[in-house]
Computed example of a mutant assay.
Amino acid sequence: MDKLKLRSTIEAARASIPADERHAASVRTRETLLEQPWVQMAGLIACYWSIGTEPATHGLVFALWKHGATVILPVLRDDDDLDWAVYDGPDTLAPGRFGLMEPVDTRRGVDAIRTAALVIVPALAVDRFTGVRLGRGGGSYDRALARVGPNVPTVALLYEGELLEGVPAEPHDLPVRYAALPDGITAVAPRSA
């Protein structure tokens, strides 16, 4: 299956999940992540502010921040690369490009993600054998993941059924190390240096 068809299939499946079930799944994923020692110990965490039918991150971002982590969120640049800024509570977000909620804090630059101890990214699917994630097609997160060190935990948030045995990949597609789902966290193929 090609990327466009797979994206369409997954987006339709997500849209068919009732909102209360999506919310419950996101809460379970959040709680599972927050129980992980490597999440609890991360001082600087790169995450994202979810939109639409994505697994919800609003509660996760807030919980990480309340537990004392510095959370940086992406700011979509005109070239579709990701700048980063610090989240300092729910009142510090404003609509950016395409209506995406972004922190109003000072921009830290595209390389700010290099200093993160944990990186949480969106995905429509992840290949359980290679760790390659299927994104929305803009390449923003592949560019960001290219800046992350090989030993930093990178986690894609998914719903059940989105950890697949085969995701179409191109040379620029970068893997993640973990897939976080409502029923647990799965280690996928480790990143190469």
Rank of each mutant, 00 (worst) to 15 (best):
Met1Val: 14
Asp2Trp: 00
Leu4Cys: 00
Leu4Gly: 15
Leu6Ile: 08
Arg7Asn: 07
Ile10Cys: 04
Ile10Glu: 01
Glu11Lys: 14
Arg14Ser: 09
Ala15Asp: 15
Ile17Ser: 08
Ala19Trp: 06
Glu21Lys: 11
Glu21Ser: 13
His23Trp: 15
Ala25His: 12
Ala25Val: 10
Ala25Arg: 10
Glu31Cys: 13
Glu31Pro: 05
Trp38Thr: 11
Val39His: 06
Gln40Pro: 07
Gly43Cys: 07
Gly43Thr: 06
Ile45Ser: 13
Cys47Thr: 13
Ile51Arg: 05
Gly52Tyr: 02
Thr57Ala: 10
Thr57Tyr: 00
His58Trp: 03
Gly59Arg: 03
Leu60Ala: 00
Val61Arg: 00
Ala63Gln: 06
Leu64Ser: 08
Lys66Arg: 14
His67Tyr: 09
Ile72His: 05
Pro74Phe: 02
Pro74Asn: 03
Asp78Leu: 07
Asp81Pro: 13
Asp81Asn: 11
Gly89Gln: 04
Gly89Val: 14
Asp91Lys: 02
Phe98Ala: 05
Gly99Val: 00
Met101Ile: 04
Met101Cys: 03
Glu102Thr: 03
Pro103Ile: 03
Arg108Gln: 15
Gly109Glu: 02
Val110Tyr: 03
Ala116Thr: 02
Ala116Asp: 14
Ala117Trp: 04
Leu118Ile: 10
Ile120Asn: 01
Val121Gly: 02
Val121Ser: 01
Ala123Met: 01
Leu124Ser: 05
Asp127Ala: 14
Asp127Thr: 04
Arg128Asp: 11
Thr130Lys: 03
Arg133Phe: 09
Gly137Ile: 14
Tyr141Met: 09
Ala146Cys: 10
Val148Cys: 08
Gly149Ala: 15
Gly149Asn: 13
Pro150Val: 09
Val152Asn: 05
Val152Met: 05
Pro153Tyr: 12
Ala156Trp: 04
Glu160Tyr: 07
Gly161Met: 00
Glu162Met: 06
Glu165Tyr: 11
Gly166Met: 02
Val167Thr: 07
Ala169Pro: 11
Pro171Gln: 06
Pro171Glu: 12
His172Trp: 14
His172Phe: 13
Leu174Asn: 11
Leu174Gln: 12
Val176Leu: 06
Arg177Ile: 11
Ala179Cys: 15
Gly184Met: 12
Gly184Gln: 03
Thr186Met: 06
Pro190His: 08
Arg191Tyr: 12
Arg191Glu: 13
Ser192Asp: 15
Ala193Gly: 11
